[in-house]
Design a protein around this nucleic acid. Structure first.
Length: 354
DNA sequence: TCTGGGGTCCTGTTCCGC
DNA sequence: TCTGGCGGAACAGGACCC
């Protein structure tokens, strides 16, 4: 039996990085958010959370909730740098770990003499070397570890078996577990299932009828805290994109194409820098009524060239021809191949063999 | 007072070739 | 020759995550 697994989560990460750069703000409600009229909060310090401010909240609302909040524009380069430093510390302690996003990781604790003591030392080292606080959850699989790290943050340190997790969170809303978001919560609510205990006891056939043969049983497994303990230690990106929300909705096709060109240029620059290429080019358009449309086209050869990307993107946009004001456009390239294979797959595909 | 940006994964549909 | 089944690839949308 594999395991145990630890989940490490950096507390209020973006805000913590800002506070370490500007110690005079310590103790104040700090919000990291963009500046436009449609900006949202990316991270709030724990002082700001006392005012009811949370992630994904419109910045305008956050300001109303706390007039004295210090608002700081996000600086992703700085966050990436601190993230790298933290991951280096983790790598010095733990052989196998899987980074997720910028501020968390799963750690394979198998074979460690005293996993808890090892995690205490790791958290101490991370703080000493980067000034970042982390919460730790330890469990038999990723799901238990993740929920455990969330349970008592900031500075949390929670160790649970699956059985203990089932008991401790029996009365918690189904959305406590990762994988059950707002939409699934709502649909479960329509079946009078709101807590994890209710989901665990739910009729599997009814769930299958409602959610399908795969997702139905998967929901019960989530409620039982059954999950894989496997880590994916060598994750490679499969797509990259750029998108922007306008301060005001846009009606003109010319203006949309101008924006699309800027985004495609930035995307091509990034792809060239990382040496990544893909065959599928997609656009994304969000209308003023929040409907989101994507269109994609796969071309015969791998590309990261601006000229190719923008030509396909504009063709897709013209074919779609939005009939309502547009609040967001985006462009992306997908279908990356693992780097060692990319040489072979450059041949035109989709042609009948000779 | 509406709701960012950058991703991943899954599902259902359609199309095409065998 | 016609038809149906099947599987894979592409595509669109949706849910979710940080």
């Amino acid at each position: 039996m594999p395991g145990p697994i630890a989940h490490l989560d950096l507390d209020a990460f973006f805000a913590s990085v800002e506070l370490s750069r500007r110690p005079e703000l310590k103790g104040l409600p700090v919000i990291v958010a963009g500046s436009g009229p449609r900006a949202v909060v990316t991270t709030a310090s724990y002082e700001a959370r006392l005012f009811g401010i949370g992630s994904a909240m419109p910045a305008s609302k956050a300001k109303r909730l706390c007039r004295d909040a210090v608002i700081i524009a996000p600086n992703f380069d700085a966050y990436r740098e601190v993230s790298r430093a933290v991951m280096l510390v983790i790598g010095n302690h733990i052989e196998r770990f899987e980074q997720l996003g910028i501020d968390e990781a799963f750690l394979d604790l198998e074979g460690l003499h005293s996993p808890k003591a090892a995690m205490r030392r790791l958290v101490g080292d991370i703080y000493d070397q980067t000034a970042m606080r982390a919460s730790i959850g330890i469990g038999p699989n990723r799901l238990v570890a993740k929920v455990a790290s969330d349970a008592e943050k900031p500075n949390g340190f929670v160790v649970l078996t699956a059985d203990e997790a089932r008991h401790r969170f029996a009365g918690s809303p189904v959305s406590l577990v990762p994988g059950i978001g707002p939409r699934t919560s709502e649909r479960l609510g329509e079946m009078a299932i709101t807590t994890l205990a209710q989901l665990r006891a739910a009729d599997e056939d009814a769930l299958i009828e409602r959610f399908g043969a795969r997702q139905g049983p998967a929901l019960i497994a989530l409620a039982c805290f059954e999950a894989s303990a496997e880590l994916v230690t060598d994750r490679e990106a499969v797509s990259e994109s750029r998108e922007t929300t306008f301060d005001r909705d846009i009606n003109s096709g010319d203006e949309l194409e101008t924006e699309l060109k800027l985004l495609a240029a930035e995307l091509a620059r990034a792809l060239n820098q990382s040496g990544r290429r893909g065959r599928t080019i997609r656009i994304k358009v969000r209308l003023d009524d929040w409907t989101t449309v994507t269109r994609a086209r796969t071309i015969p050869t791998l590309t990261n060239e601006y000229g190719v990307i923008i030509a396909v993107a504009i063709a897709l946009l013209r074919e779609y021809a939005p009939q309502r004001p547009v609040r967001l456009v985006g462009v992306g390239v997908a279908g990356f191949v693992p780097r060692q294979q990319s040489g072979q797959l450059e041949l035109p595909l989709g042609l009948p063999a000779a």
